[in-house]
Amino acid sequence: MTDGVGPVLEASDGGRAVVEAIRADNTGVVVLDRGAYLRVLVPHRCILRRAAIERALGRPFAFPSDLELVMPAFQGNVTITDDEVVWAWSSSG
C-alpha cells in the first residue's frame, strides 16, 4: 500500500486494542502481523478516536502518552489532540 498511513504497535493487549479502535473508525484497514509488532495501514488517512479505544479497553486512555507506550513507530504525518490522533500525508503523492 504505497499511500498507507498508520501506527506500528507492539503485539500486546494495548496494541491490539488500538488496532480494534482503528478498525472501528476506518475503512480499508490492513494489519500486518510481524510477531513482535503489528503494522496498521489505512489508505491516505487513519484516525484513532479516544472514545473508541476507551470502549475497546474499558478504561481511560490518554493521548499521546498511553499511545506512545505501545507505538514504536508510525507512517505518515501525525496530528494529536486530546481526543483524536490522525495519520495522513499532506500531499497526495
Binding site: 506500528v8 507492539e10 510481524r34 510477531g35 513482535a36 509488532y37 499521546p64 506512545e68 507506550l69 505501545v70 507505538m71 514504536p72 513507530a73 508510525f74
Partner: peptide, 30 residues
C-alpha cells in the same frame, strides 16, 4: 535497527533485548 531487530530478538527469545529496543524506539517515534 530498533523495531526490526527487536522483532528478531522476539523470535530468538531474547526478551531483555526485545523490550529495551522497542521501548527506546517509542521515544524516537515522538
Amino acid at each position: 535497527q530498533f523495531v526490526g531487530l527487536s522483532a528478531m530478538a522476539h523470535d530468538v527469545g531474547d526478551r531483555m533485548f526485545e523490550t529495551m529496543l522497542k521501548s527506546i524506539q517509542t521515544d524516537e517515534a515522538r
